[in-house]
């Protein structure tokens, strides 16, 4: 180790700047296309079911990861679930305090073996508990664009 002991700022050593100039366009895929279109157009959640393994996947999958069979059985899932676990976030990615703390929950969707990690809204963080019943609040149809944020948040029921 040489200069590193003495430099106060990264640019005190000779440096060059660089970036990796790429962005990505991710297709949501065969199962994702139907899942997100149902959310966007109908404000409904759909799951796929593997009868062999008795597993209901939400978000839905094209194949069962356990037995590898293609999943053709689509079932509508309720937009309700229970808080499996949660956290309240106080700082942003750069470590700055958030204007309002945000509560994030892993919501196990009813009648499925899966769930969604999403914001909780219309609830004081101190009142959230594991096992709490919640429901999805969808944005207005005109604002939905086929994204997981077409669900604005989950709120207590």
């Amino acid at each position: 180790m040489s200069l590193l002991y003495r430099i106060q700022h990264p640019r005190d050593a000779l440096v060059v700047e660089g970036s990796m100039p790429i962005t990505s366009l991710y297709t949501v895929g065969i199962a994702g296309e139907r899942f997100f279109r149902e959310i966007m157009e109908q404000a409904r959640l759909f799951a796929t079911r593997c009868p062999e393994c008795d597993v209901t996947y939400l978000p839905p999958r094209l194949y069962c990861e356990r037995c590898f069979s293609q999943l053709d059985e689509w079932v509508e899932a309720p937009a309700t679930g229970r808080v499996h676990t949660y956290t309240t976030v106080h700082i942003d990615l750069d470590g700055n305090p958030l204007p309002e703390p945000r509560t994030i929950a892993f919501v196990r969707i009813d009648d499925t073996d899966g769930g969604i990690v999403h914001y909780l809204g219309k609830v004081d963080p101190s009142e959230v508990y594991i096992g709490m019943g919640v429901e999805a609040v969808f944005k207005k149809k005109s604002e939905r664009k086929g994204s997981i944020t077409d669900i604005a948040y989950f709120r207590p029921v």
Partner: peptide, 26 residues
Amino acid sequence: RAQETAKELAWEAASKALESCEMTLD
């Protein structure tokens, strides 16, 4: 340009390979 996700592409190839020798994931 595939519509399938990367996982869905992998699954298709992997299932075909298993089917070709009549084996299963088990």
